[in-house]
Write a protein that binds this DNA or RNA. Structure first.
Lengths: 321, 321
DNA sequence: ACTAAATGTGTAATCGGTTACAGATTGAGG
DNA sequence: CCTCAATCTGTAACCGATTACACATTTAGT
């Protein structure tokens, strides 16, 4: 690796001058600048970020904490983060924390060992942000006064409820996601508020997990528990799919006999037959805007909103009448 | 942040002694060790990796280059990498390179600026590995003599071909993935070898991309191009799904009229109705073993196989007769 | 022409670790 | 009791950058 010292030597100036040229800081004479630029080009020099970040006590890296990369929602979010970061000269460090507070702590410690300049967290943990590092919450707006980007899940729930009402759902099953996921509660309460206002008749089906492997079994249980219903508001697309599969297996027609609405809009939701009507969450945008907010925080720019809520959107396909 | 200097001071020894205690290197007296450990505990000290890596010219970070995180195959792979890394004290830096050689170069440069100790790449680019950093290829075993972990795609293709033959495919369409993806070629040639050996009649349908948004359109084109066929070997699960959807839309029954086999085994493949029979790729394992190989390379342990090929597996569900 | 401000440059300290080297102490063997 | 090796420990150099400070040289203003 070529160092600043070698550049200085080649250019016939001191390392300070090279550094000033690199960072456009302080005064640098015309001729010196030319010689330094020449040397940099000839030697193919680029600065060592480790040395830089040792002195600055901060590197151009941001940490991204995810509860589960294999859940299809998060890769999209990660892509948004990565795109913004990359465009602004930051690197993303990935941490898969699996709803495990210890793992989360471990990562936060790791991060600080590497002088990471900020953290983006979609993980559940309520960190007491005693470390001075900028922290932005993704998709988990807690009550406290921290920065966050999230989807308006209550609105999403309302949208789903409205869509079902508009397509004349009479006998509705509302699947409630796990209680400990705050977004799931908001969706439920949003949906119920609309249903209640319209005086519709519905029943709530509790599911205790978002785990994919349990989806099929849960769908079976739903059909076994409730005899007759004509509409299902699923807690997410994976469950919607499982319900759809079970419905078709049991010879119901979709949407004629049973209509279904999902939540998330995963890529396969439109590849189903019939296409799944669902509430799209702007996962990519959550990631992108989260990264933007974090970088602004790091670079101490003004931030208008501490808490940004993005709007979900109804995607009409064929699983509603 | 508490530094080694403060620890030394508190313990009443020199920084060298603290460092020796931390790294179990050189001689450290019993009493000194005790005092240092005490001080570390009291002060809550943990070493700054940036400083360490500046001197060592290598950090405990590995770079992971992915062509597209939003493609559902890669998150699983990433999880495998992340799990192994985390268990062995390494951090993972994510780079989404999108089949873009410039972006890949940019990342490799980024990585070297951060003294990254190794790179795991699932990206297409054939890097002239002139940098001395350990490099392991994931799922892209090139001819050259570099390290790699990949799936035996030829075998996967054969498995698919055999499965179709066993379920009495008469008139087979084989979808060829993009030519520039080496794995896609291997699958194709594997499938064809089996089909040829059996003297089966088939036609090859070329697709030029693995992009998800093009899947539906491609499936329509397939049906428009070929009048009659009873079996499809799809280039991956997304395409298999799109073909299934189009088939159902056109009132074909699956698997009675048309049977379909996919490739990858994505999570939604079993949530379809009918469940998609497919060739499962051990994505998680590719990631995990790749990380293992890389870490062994970094730590200069002996490596038995430079090129590891993992076996794909047939997952029987309901889309074959 | 004379002073003050603006500009240009190099030396050395600093960031927080690791380690070569030297000097001190202890212990074993003769 | 002496010698030599083994064991401990501290000082200082080093990793590759940034920057405070001192000093030199221009430039501007009167």
């Amino acid at each position: 690796m070529v160092t600043i010292k070698q550049v200085a030597e080649y250019a016939g100036v001191s390392v300070a001058t090279v550094s000033r040229t690199l960072n456009d800081s302080g005064y640098v004479g015309k001729e010196s600048r030319r010689k330094v630029e020449e040397a940099i080009k000839v030697l193919g020099y680029y600065p060592n970020e480790v040395a830089r970040s040792l002195y600055q006590k901060s590197s151009k890296m941001i940490g991204l904490l995810l509860p589960d990369i294999s859940n299809p929602y998060f890769p999209l979010l990660a892509k948004g983060v990565e795109d913004y970061a990359q465009q602004n000269g930051y690197m993303v460090i990935l941490g898969n924390v699996e709803d495990n507070a210890d793992k989360e702590d471990m990562y936060v410690k790791f991060f600080s060992q590497y002088n990471i300049s900020g953290v983006l967290s979609a993980a559940s943990g309520k960190r007491k942000n005693n470390d001075r590092v900028p922290y932005v919450l993704l998709d988990r707006a807690l009550e406290e006064e921290n920065y966050s980007i999230s989807t308006d899940d209550r609105l999403g729930g309302k949208l789903a409820g409205q869509a079902i009402l508009e397509s004349r759902g009479q006998n509705i099953i509302v699947m409630a996601g796990p209680r400990h996921v705050s977004g799931a509660n908001d969706r439920l309460s949003g949906a119920l508020s609309v249903l209640n206002a319209a005086g519709a008749s519905y029943r709530v089906f509790e599911t205790e997990t978002f785990q994919v492997d349990r989806a099929e079994e849960t769908a079976q249980r739903l059909f076994d528990t409730f005899k007759s219903f004509d509409s299902v508001i699923a807690s997410n697309d994976v469950y919607a799919l499982a319900v759809m599969k079970e419905a078709i297996k049991r010879k119901y027609r979709i949407p004629e006999d049973i209509q279904i609405i999902g939540y998330d809009d995963m890529l396969f939701s439109r590849l189903m037959y019939p296409g799944l009507t669902t509430i799209a969450q702007p996962a990519y945008e959550v990631g992108f805007k989260g990264a933007e907010m974090l970088v602004n925080l790091i670079e101490k720019k003004v931030i208008i909103d501490k808490k940004v809520k993005l709007k979900p959107e109804l995607i009409r396909r064929d699983s509603l009448r």
